[in-house]
Every structure is written in structure tokens, then in C-alpha cells.
Design a binder for these strands. Structure first.
Lengths: 184, 184
DNA sequence: TTGCTTACTTACTAGTAAGTAAGTAACTTG
DNA sequence: CAAGTTACTTACTTACTAGTAAGTAAGCAA
């Protein structure tokens, strides 16, 4: 594997999370990596190609994480998901969905499709986690697991957005209450 | 009042909600209103000035709405807030906070400050609404009203982001479950 | 050693961004 | 009626955007 290609994706991921997809340029990637913007275009001909790669990496990281968690009790699995978001919070990041969804209408159909897939994957996982946890009496909640999953995901997503505006304690309050709500 | 100035703010509001602050240009405003981009700069010298005006208008609309609702039972007040978001959902909009928060780091300190004020205002109102509703036995929830308010707001905010990606039924499921959770 | 591929650089284009200076027509005010 | 103000237009600048064409140095493959 090329080192440079990975570095570009990593930096693009950070830039999307901090500034947003439409607010960073190839220069913002090329300069810190000490290459020319044409080098970025060599690896990712269009900005959409780069965006696709960033989303792809995120989906791989997610699948890898949940696979590692699958033997744990459901409440711990969900707490670990909250931890992933907490780390982003303290790194000054928002989540990919939270950053890309507002820009959705400005993105290529391929990027939109890939974002859809990412959303489906996370909803499906949280839904299954909640369903199993409810069967095991580890989780208690009203309504369908699918509806509850949407609430949990929307809490996590927006907690990062609110934390950016109101400070990281907003994240902690949401993350704590969210897990507590499911316990009783 | 000038008609043009109002039209510019209204259109900018729509563009921020649909494309994001960094993805629209003065041309996107000037062309549909059949004026030159310099006319927009006449009313709003910098893009940040325009952004400030959009946020200011939103805050005024919010204050006006909640004032009109103040005699209603708290559950109805909250349901009306959900309705405001529902209308945005079906208009293809995200909320201002949801659009501006991801771009926060790219905005001027003044815009950031104004976004902070907007966030504080909405959190304060929801907190008070939940507190009163709990006293009246209209709402039932665990934890502090402040924490619960953050959860409600994050649900509403992200429901619009998720609806954009997953379709409007995501909003409906979140909005319904959210109100139901507070009833029992 | 010849030729092909990889990973770039150099140098450029065409388009668009925000922003401005100067001018003007219409309206308002003393 | 004269002077100023309002709400623009015309014409422009500077800076940056994504993207490309052509060249090159290093490595590998037959």
C-alpha cells in the first residue's frame, strides 16, 4: 500500500469532520503532506472520489469494531459505541454523517448512495443490539427496537454538533442519560 | 422596510438549510432575485453579515412562536415545536443549528457567538417547558430537565439530518416516539 | 537494456468565490 | 429646487477552486 494515499484519506477525514466537505480544498490536503495538489488528484481524480474513500474507510472501521464487540453484553457494546463518539468529541470532530448530511444535496449521487449505505449499516446494527439486549433483559424501552435505534443514533449524532457549540459537557450529559434510559 | 433585503435573508436561510453555509454563493442569491451580486453586498457587506441576519431572523421567529404558545399545556407546546421541525422536514430543510454546527470552525467569531446564543435560547426554553410539564404531571421523565432537554433537542436536530438521508419517515418515527416517551 | 508502471512535479486552464470602487436613477428632506 | 440618501448597476480585482496535460525520476519486469 502507498503511504501517501492513506495519509490523504486520513487527513481528508479529519478535514471533513472539522470544516465540512465543501469547506476544504485539495490545497488543505497537499500542503500539510508536502506534496502538490496534482498528487492528490493522482490518487483521487475528483473530490467525490476522495469523499467515497473516506466514507469507505469509516464503514470498514465500523464493521471491524462491531465484529470485535460481538461477544460482549449488549449494554457494553452500546457503551463502546458511545465511547467512539466521545473520542471524536474530545478530538473536536463531528461524526461523518453529521458532517455530510447537511451537505447531502451538494454531493454526487454516488456519494449520496454511499452515505445511505453507511446510515443503513449503523441503524441496522443498533437495532439488532437493542433487540438482543431487550431479550436478555439488559435493555428496557418502549416502542420498536428500530424506532429506539433512530433515537439513540440521533442523540449521538447531534451530541457532537451540540458539543461543538455548547462545549463537550453537552456530549457527556447526552451520552450518560442515553445509556441510563435504556437500563431501567 | 426594503423588500429586497427581506427576500435576500429568506433565500439565504433556505440556501443554508438546503446546501450549507459554505456551499452557496452571492450568485445563488442574486440570480433568482434578478439583481447583481453587488446588490447583495450592498445590503450585507460580508457573507458573515448575511449569516448573522439569517440567525437573527430565526431567533425572532422562535421567540415569537414560543410567546404565542405560552398559555398552552406543555405537551402541546412541545408538540408544536415538533411540528415546526416537521414542516422543515417536508420542505427538504435541516434546522439552522444542524446546518451551521458542522461548519462552526469555518465561521467568524461573531457568527459563532450568535449560534451559541441561539443554542442557549432553545435549550433554555425546552428545559423550562419540560420542568413545568413535569410539575403539572403532563411529562414524566428521569434525570434533570436540562439533560432531558438536550436529548429532545438532539433528537429533533438529527431527525432532520437522518430524514435527508433515509427519507422523511425517519423524522416521523423519531418525532412520535420522542413525544410518547415523555407522556408516561 | 528496453520498456512499462508508479508516483509524483511543473505549469497551466477555466471557472467561481467574496468583495469593492465608482457611477446612476429615483426618491426624500429641508 | 437643491442636497442628500437609498438602492441599486457596471465593471472590476484578487484569490482560490477543482481539475488537467505533459513531463520526469525511480523502480520493476522480460
Amino acid at each position: 500500500m502507498t503511504l501517501m494515499k492513506d495519509k490523504i484519506v486520513t487527513l481528508a477525514d479529519k478535514l471533513i469532520r472539522v470544516k465540512g466537505f465543501n469547506a476544504f480544498s485539495y490545497k488543505d490536503i497537499a500542503d500539510p503532506l508536502s506534496v502538490k495538489n496534482a498528487a492528490v488528484h493522482y490518487h483521487f481524480p475528483s473530490k467525490a472520489d476522495l469523499g467515497m474513500a473516506v466514507i469507505g474507510e469509516e464503514m470498514q472501521r465500523f464493521q471491524h469494531s462491531v465484529q470485535q464487540w460481538q461477544q460482549l453484553p449488549e449494554e457494553e457494546q452500546l457503551a463502546l459505541l458511545v465511547d467512539v463518539f466521545r473520542k471524536h468529541c474530545y478530538a473536536g470532530n463531528v461524526c461523518l454523517m453529521g458532517s455530510l448530511a447537511p451537505d447531502y444535496e451538494t454531493l454526487t449521487p454516488q456519494m449520496q448512495e454511499k452515505i445511505n449505505e453507511m446510515a443503513e449499516a449503523i441503524v441496522e446494527w443498533v437495532t439488532t443490539c437493542l433487540e438482543k439486549g431487550r431479550k436478555n433483559k439488559r435493555f428496557h424501552f418502549k416502542g420498536t427496537a428500530g424506532d429506539r435505534a433512530l433515537l439513540v443514533i440521533s442523540n449521538l449524532q447531534s451530541s457532537l454538533l451540540l458539543a461543538r457549540v455548547m462545549g463537550p459537557e453537552a456530549f457527556d450529559r447526552i451520552g450518560r442519560q442515553l445509556l441510563e434510559d435504556l437500563r431501567s
